[in-house]
């Protein structure tokens, strides 16, 4: 897997975690009541980690990430059975079946999100 794609995946996973924690609902309730988590502290830690990780990305990738983040909550999305799970448009067959899966940082031609190929 391309190291920048790996970083992007990790950033996206952290942002997913942050979104769930920040939203009043079952996850926040479970995290506080079952695990005794301090949500405010957790959010601050996640924010710091995301900032650090974003700083490690090259400028073009970071720029696209920030532009896309302004538009979409999910910027890195899986491709499952040939479909971009951001916009649900079929990606080109050559991309979906690439033997060097995830060895490059690729984006969806339709929505511009970063793509992660998964079986």
């Amino acid at each position: 897997m391309h190291p920048h794609l790996e970083t992007l995946l990790e950033i996206q996973d952290l942002k997913t975690q942050r979104r769930e924690l920040a939203t009043a609902g079952l996850d926040r309730e479970v995290q506080e009541s079952v695990f005794g988590l301090s949500v405010d502290d957790a959010l601050a830690q996640i924010d710091q980690k995301v900032t650090e990780m974003e700083a490690t990305l090259p400028a073009p990738v970071r720029g696209r990430l920030q532009r896309m983040q302004a538009k979409h909550p999910r910027v890195v999305v899986p491709v499952i059975r040939g479909t971009c799970y951001g916009c649900f448009v079929q990606v080109p067959t050559a991309l979906a079946s690439d033997a060097d899966r995830n060895e490059e940082v690729r984006t969806c031609q339709s929505c511009g999100r970063f793509l992660y190929l998964i079986d």
Binding site: E6, L9, E10, D13, L14, Q17, Q31, F35, G36, L37, S38, D41, A42, Q45, I46, K49
Partner: peptide
């Protein structure tokens, strides 16, 4: 990747 994510969750609490 999963290990790192689980570790980060553990680091939060």
């Amino acid at each position: 990747i999963l290990f790192k994510m689980l570790k980060r969750r553990e680091n939060l609490g």
